[in-house]
């Protein structure tokens, strides 16, 4: 139906065992709040990313419930504690239209 929603996951800080990285996730989602109207005056239905889950090596580390006050594109930065063996950080999102997406990034020590 719509074009794929581009998401991005990146970090800042040194990727070392025990370090606290800042993981930055963003998604180019329209995040329609349901309060706006289009050019013909019709209300644009609410469609926001309502759930974001972050996994580190398939272990859930963070789950976020998003409201209409999140911007478009959505941006969320959260800390990730680097495990000694490294691993994979995966972020999954879901929106009101039932669309889902997944981004993953490897922690290379």
């Amino acid at each position: 139906m719509s074009s794929p929603i581009l998401t991005r996951l990146a970090w800042t800080g040194p990727v070392k065992a025990g370090a606290n990285l800042e993981a930055r996730w963003s998604a180019a989602h329209p995040m329609d709040s349901g309060f706006r109207v289009d050019d013909s005056g019709r209300q644009i239905p609410k469609n926001i990313i309502h759930t974001v889950r972050a996994y580190l090596n398939d272990r859930l580390i963070m789950e976020a419930d998003l409201g209409t006050a999140m911007t478009s594109p959505v941006y969320l930065a959260f800390p990730v504690l680097v495990p000694p063996e490294g691993g994979i950080v995966k972020v999954i999102w879901k929106d009101d239209l039932g669309q889902m997406g997944e981004t993953q990034q490897r922690l290379v020590l």
Partner: peptide, 17 residues
């Protein structure tokens, strides 16, 4: 605006949005 449930028991947390 945001409800963040944190599972990995951190003592310090930096959130940006």
């Amino acid at each position: 605006a945001l409800h963040l449930k944190i599972m990995d028991q951190p003592v310090q947390y930096r959130l940006k949005t």
